[in-house]
Design a protein around this nucleic acid. Sequence first.
DNA 1: TCTTTAACTTGACACTGTCTAGTTAAAGGA
DNA 2: TCCTTTAACTAGACAGTGTCAAGTTAAAGA
Lengths: 197, 197
Amino acid sequence: MNKDKHHHGDLREALISAGIGLMEAGGPAALSLRKCAAKAGVSHAAPAHHFKGITSLKAAIVARSYKIFAETMQTHRHGLTEPRARLVAICEGYLAFARSHAALFQFMFQPFPPDFAQINPPILAELEQYSTLAYRELEQACAPFAPIGGQEGGIEVMVWSLVHGYAMLFASAPEARTPAGTPPDFAQILPAFPLRK
Amino acid sequence: MNKDKHHHGDLREALISAGIGLMEAGGPAALSLRKCAAKAGVSHAAPAHHFKGITSLKAAIVARSYKIFAETMQTHRHGLTEPRARLVAICEGYLAFARSHAALFQFMFQPFPPDFAQINPPILAELEQYSTLAYRELEQACAPFAPIGGQEGGIEVMVWSLVHGYAMLFASAPEARTPAGTPPDFAQILPAFPLRK
DNA sequence: TCTTTAACTTGACACTGTCTAGTTAAAGGA
DNA sequence: TCCTTTAACTAGACAGTGTCAAGTTAAAGA
């Protein structure tokens, strides 16, 4: 741990972990550059040498979230080869992540603030990498099925919209606030879908 | 306008309008109690007499957003009686709002922070009222169609999830970042849906 | 060993939300 | 009309935030 040394050793990683911890404990609003620094045991200005600003740290946290997100879906579909079962498993992984990492899930899909440009390029690349990784999971699960409306990629957009909307509205919310009672399980919704091989 | 008078006249309304203006100009992060007060021409502590804290002001802004949201859907479905056309129109209204009021749309569907309790009860009631109003639009548009999976309300959840997910991912985002090109129009997706009367 | 560079600290600044105390204006009662 | 009460606002202070500038300390390279 490099105790008492001037260099922290792996401050970058420590800051990301601290940030995720803060968000999971108190929601996205609980994230603060200074609190992350304190949790990592460094001064309040230390993060500046690893992240250009708080937007950069946020981007790094989102990148990390996408990584966990993709891994969750991978775990769920592992070993399944039958197309329909595989797609269902991917959706279950999607919803499982939204439930168990509610704060991160909400944070990931928030549009980025206008100061996007200040994010360090390597962080941007990492973000791109893992979000693509997650998207590929969904894409591959949809691949066996015939396109909808003749448009390429239409089926992914349809399934993605459905599972994402459900996750946002019912899985990740603190209380699934449907004015009309408890929503049905997603497992009852997806099978009603017109998926043809 | 009650110029030079001690009382503003309608500060509450002015603060909500100012808040919406700020958010539409610079995104949700641009909202600040002090900036709202400045825009309304009062001191920085004046809002405290109308909103218990910034969470209350945010709730009031969300309530107002739901009102506009419901009205947008009403306008779109106006005059349509054929069930399918009506449902399509409601969805178009949903997406139109997400596009034209992107910041508000994102903000509305963000889960509330833990300090929910500090929100003034009348604001909470207003929020409840308008969000229910918006939900009723969708509910009524779905009513003519047969339930899915035997579960009551299943069709609403399905349609709502689909249009909401699409709105979040493709309509309200600054750039619809699908790793695989431009997403298809929603008009091509909904018709593929298994809706029976 | 000297120089350079990266990692971090310290201190300051403007900005945020919120609290307390004071002021000003309107409203109600005699 | 005068007095009291109350609501609406101002002014000032406080802790917390992100960010910048300058200094320090440690590691790396020649």
